[in-house]
Each structure stands twice: as C-alpha cells, then as structure tokens.
Nucleic acid binder design. Sequence first.
DNA 1: ATAGCGCAAATTGCATACAATACCCAAATC
DNA 2: GATTTGGGTATTGTATGCAATTTGCGCTAT
Lengths: 260, 260
Amino acid sequence: MVKQGSFDDAVARPAPRSRQQIQALLKLRELILSGAFPPGERVSELDVVGRLGISRTPIRAALTMLQHEGFLRTLPGGGFIVRDFSIADIHDAIDIRGVLEGAAARRAAERKPSPAELAPMQAVLEETDEVLHAAHPSQQALEHYVRLNERFHRLLLDLAASPMLRRSLAHVQSLPFASPNAFVEIQARVNARDEVLLIAQAQHRSIVEAIALGEGARAESLAREHARLARRNLDLAQGRLELMRFVPGAALLREAREEP
Amino acid sequence: MVKQGSFDDAVARPAPRSRQQIQALLKLRELILSGAFPPGERVSELDVVGRLGISRTPIRAALTMLQHEGFLRTLPGGGFIVRDFSIADIHDAIDIRGVLEGAAARRAAERKPSPAELAPMQAVLEETDEVLHAAHPSQQALEHYVRLNERFHRLLLDLAASPMLRRSLAHVQSLPFASPNAFVEIQARVNARDEVLLIAQAQHRSIVEAIALGEGARAESLAREHARLARRNLDLAQGRLELMRFVPGAALLREAREEP
DNA sequence: ATAGCGCAAATTGCATACAATACCCAAATC
DNA sequence: GATTTGGGTATTGTATGCAATTTGCGCTAT
C-alpha cells in the first residue's frame, strides 16, 4: 500500500559495487572526517593511492562519491579539494532538514495512516520513554536512545510515502552534521540530566499525535521546530572548544575568522 | 553580502571535467530521454561503447552521473537499468519542488531584502508582463516566457541565500519533469489564450510582494501553490496521448497498467 | 626588479588489458 | 521430472600505460 523505495536508495547508499570501491570510500571518508586531509587541501589521486594501496580507478570512483556527498569540491582544472564548513552552513543544513522532515510529517498526516501503520512509531515512543525514565545517564542508554531516535526519523519518512522526499533527505543527510542524531552526544555532555532529550521526546509524541489526527499543518510545524533542537544544541557548544570536538565532521569546520 | 555558491553547483552541473565525459553524458542522456534505451532495459557499458565510440572509462563516469540524476538505477549484481516513472512520481517530484521553493520564498522574505536586491525580480515581472500582453501566442514569445520564468525561479533561489537549498533544488530538478518550465509547452498547446501563464504571473507578483513586505509565511504558501500549477498542467494532459508526448522525459513514463 | 614567456614536472583524463564475478544453460543425478 | 551442479560466456571491476592538460618555476628581456 505504501509505495516506496521507488526512487532508489542509491543516494543514501552511494552504491559502491565492489570491494575496492567500498574500501576506498570508507577509508577516504574516514580520513577526511578525521582531519587527515585538512579543508582546503587538494586531494591528489596518486596521494590517496599511496596511502590506501588501492589503484586509481576505484579511488576516482570514491572521490566522485564523496563529491556528491558534499565533502569534496571539484577544481576548475580537474581534481578535488576538501570542503570546509561554517557554522552558518550547519545551521542552513539543519534548517533544510527541518523543512523536509516537516514536509514528511505533513504528508504522513494527510495520508491519515491507520493505527496499525502507526504502531511501530508508538512502539518507539514507548521504548524511548523507558530509556529516558528508567536509566540514569549512561553511555549505553545514550546509544540506545540514538538508535531509537534514528528509527523514529526513519519511520516518519516511511509514513510520508514519498520517494522524492526520501531521496532529498538522504542527500541532505549525507553531511554528517545534518543527521537527526548529530548533536545528541553534545547535548548529553552539556546537560547531564537529559533535559533536551525529554523535550525532543515530547515533540516526537506531538508529531505522532498530529499525524494520527490527520493534522497536517500542525505536524509540519512541529517537525520543523523539532529540527531547531539540533541548532540549539549546536549553539550550546558554540565557542566551547572542548564540546565542538564532538560535532560530527568537526575537522571540516572553519572557525569564523577575518571578522571586521 | 549574500553568501552563496558555497555548496557548489556540482550537483547542478555534474562537473564533468573532460570532453569525452561531457560527450558521453550528453549523448547518453539524450539517448535515454529519447527512448533509445527503454525503461527497464539494462544499459551495458560495452553496448554504450559501441554506440558512442567512447571508451569505457568516461562512459562509466557518465553512467554514475546519470544514476545520481535519477535516470538510472543500479542492479544488485552491478550494472545499470533505466528507471521508469509513474504519474505519481511526477506529482511527488513537483510537490517536493514546491516545498523547497516555498522554503526559498520564506527565507527570502525573512531576510527582508532591500529594494535594490529585489530590482532584478521586478524587472523580470515587468518584462514578463510585456511578453504576455503584447505578443499573441507565438512560439517565439513562448520561448521568451520560458527564459523569463527560469530567471524568476533562479532569482528566487538567489534571494534565499541558502547553499543547501540550492543544492537540494538542483538535485530535485535534475529530473526534467520537475523543472519549473516542464509543462509550459503543454499548457500553451492546451490553452491557446495563455490563461494559465497569466495566473502564474499573478502568483509571481504576489510572491515578490510578500518577500518585499517580509511576509514569510505568505511567501511560502504562495510558492507552494505556484508549483501546483505544474501539476494542474500535467493533469490537463493526462490521458491525452498527443499531449503527453510533450512531457519532458515522456519516454520514461510508464502508463498506469495492471489496475485491479 | 619585474613582467612575460616557455619549458618541465606533476596530475588528471582516457584507453585497454586483465581479473573477478555473476549469469545462464546444459547435463547429470536423485 | 525436478533439482542441483558444473562450466562457459557475458559483463563488470581493477590496474596500469599513455596522452593531454595544467601548474609552477626559472629564465630572459625590458
């Protein structure tokens, strides 16, 4: 009934088809995210060949994939350079994620899903409640929460039943700091009592309620506001270097320099 | 002041860096859109090599680009297959474009651009008025309108000053039937008196007005509604095969078959 | 001293040989 | 007769040599 997957997850999974390509993609992304290739530095194919011990062909493929994911820019004369990101870029990405998830929530609501269809989300809500209330702050509980959070957002997207929305969101979230879980780690460190997580959970509940009632506009604005929580967590970490280290892709961040 | 381009137009221009890749991409896309490779058919590399007289390397690059553009899907065992699209897919793509352009309009309004910044849009509005009122329906006038329409939508995106929005919209519009100009041709054929174009122009005016007044919510809903015009034009053509031929990418359309 | 020109080195783009893998059909066995 | 297994074929994945382009440096001339 819920026709989906039509648009292919090829954007989400960059669909590397062989072992060498997979290895090259994973290792290279890891190297970039860890700062081994600083932003602004040119990434030469032969350089990567030397570091990974893989021949140029699969490495070129991986470079193109990383370009589509947003980590690399192409140079006019050919070749790639590592992108850098400003805080404004992250704000921007989070906002667009909010717009898209808002659209997903609206479409989910307008489809008026049956209780049976909503059951998986309800289950996530309840399981999250247990995690938040039973367990005291622990790394394990946090990881459990992260998994549940991811599941919630995936189920929301499923309910929207929109291949194009799926494709667009996957594209946006290929940037690590645009994912729904991007700042959970930070928020847990800044606020041991998980206050923000409780707020997030309340928002999840409201979104599901709005969807169940078919209240599209409400669902949309709630989902948008929900994305703002990530911005808030980011702003909390702003300026505190010991926290900014936990921002995904922190190595690609350029601190705001050259202010008048 | 309007920081832009940060996110790279690499998604818009798939950034082929050499002549062979460009040729392969353009010719292959042309072949697919013209129906030379019917939907569902596997596109073998050697087959394309035979048809285009270009070696496998640039052809592989072109194939992956076309996959990212949405025309091809990857097969589990490797290789590509031509995608097909349903009317529902087109509706979906148009809706998401509406969502994104709505977000663009809102952000433009919330930035409260100065009259100087809005001048280019005002100029487009006036020039479009001239085209719509002076000229009687002619192919030349229509082409002029198409150019102006494209300019309007590009300027709107510029005003939003959001790299991520730019990237996402480019991604969505890589599918030809998701572009703002996709159905202008059809509408002109179905309704010689350009009624719909007048409506579109009125909507353009309202959007600019809302932006100028800083009315974000109004600008957003207007832009969304504006995208619905494309849907309406598509629905007008629905079922009339002599019109559906003019839908961009018509060769990739699968008519709704196997209904219960 | 500086600007412009030209050559050399480095780097990407292209082509192709070779390897690995998936697919298909046929044959044999249960 | 159905199922499974084997091999052969087709197709994609990988590596690398060669060509073309770009970049940067040094030399020269003004």
